[in-house]
Design a protein around this nucleic acid. Structure first.
Lengths: 193, 193
DNA sequence: GTAAATTATTGACATTTGTCAATAAACCGC
DNA sequence: GCGGTTTATTGACAAATGTCAATAATTTAC
């Protein structure tokens, strides 16, 4: 692991656009760095998401909690990706979802205000962000497709194909509610192969 | 209905950014205009989506067809909105989904090449498109939420609240597979109130 | 306007998935 | 390493939803 917490963010940017070191440093200066404990809550449901996060290592989980205490995982954000409770962060309105760091994590974060300022002032960043949004949007479309066209077993198999490492590293409880099924159903799927 | 087929697109743009008439005309010139018949297929599954559409009137449906002939509606695109088989259009790879105009429709369309050229050359357009992407992404996140946290009845009630006109104007068969449930289940939900 | 086609409804039943409960296994923090 | 907590598995059953089939209602194309 590189000692510089901005190393991966710089890679993310420079992979997407030509940019010199000085510019990169200006860009990164807007992000703050922190480490989190396992299961640390970064955003409570009902609060307005102040930050978007970039994950250096570990994993963030964006999830909802219904009145019966049932949890549903909306998104999982792993190394080298941006993530937040997007509707809340984007619209600056109270979040239906909470965010927790499901593993001890090393993350960067930037406020909504600074993020928007970067979009307005940093040449090329809006373009890179737009491309990144397109990718995230496509991923969410594929998730919708899997939810409306596949049963539990097919969705699990798909996840095994596309994200086998997620399945290995996360408790199957989390995988189950990411798939929108109960823990017991997932357990049965796994045993019945 | 305005006689100029670009009227609504101009409104879409000028509502989102300051732009003069001459620029608007340059912008719109990249779009072609056509009308479609009810149930006309605009894109076959397996083809690469060449166009993104702007709907003046009518409704486009982006849907998938599984091996058993079961259809699933991924998105519905109504008046004043952009839409296409997004993953295919964006990545220029074969589409899992087909597009049909579910009602006789009046639409504009632009090729992937021209669309990207506009992003590169038309000042402010990438910004407007980015904002529009954020909205679409948020809508898709909300759809994912509803699919993983709600049962069929709750999803139907949500759709009644958020898009009552859609329910009125489209056959309930379409509504059912948009919700990811069978036509029969939807029919029972409606009768059991 | 009418015939043909499509869509909607309803019943009976099958299947999938969820819920609750009990136990076993794994894991975590110290 | 150990004790306590969380997570996973399994069974029994309930609830939700899907499938198939028959019929009714609606809509469309001409």
């Amino acid at each position: 692991m590189p000692s510089n917490p901005y190393h991966q963010l710089k890679q993310f940017i420079s992979a997407a656009m030509p940019v010199d070191d000085e510019q990169l440093n200006i860009f990164c200066k807007k992000f703050r760095h922190k480490t989190t404990k396992r299961n640390e809550i970064l955003l409570q449901a009902g609060d307005i998401a102040p930050y978007i996060y970039f994950v250096n290592s570990g994993c963030l989980r964006v999830f909802m909690l219904d009145v019966n205490g049932k949890e549903s995982t909306r998104f999982l954000v792993t190394e080298g990706r941006f993530g937040t409770a997007f509707p809340s962060f984007n619209l600056q309105e109270p979040s239906l979802a909470a965010i927790q760091s499901i593993e001890p994590s090393d993350i960067l974060y930037i406020s909504h205000h600074d993020f928007n300022a970067l979009l307005d002032t940093f040449p090329g960043w809006e373009h890179v962000y737009r491309i990144s949004l397109e990718k995230d949007y496509i991923a969410s479309i594929k998730r919708i497709e899997s939810l409306i066209t596949m049963d539990a077993k097919q969705r699990y198999q798909l996840l095994m194909e596309t994200s086998p490492t997620l399945i290995q590293r996360l408790p199957s409880k989390i995988i189950a509610d990411y798939l929108g099924i109960s823990q017991e159903t997932l357990s049965r799927l796994k045993s019945k192969r």
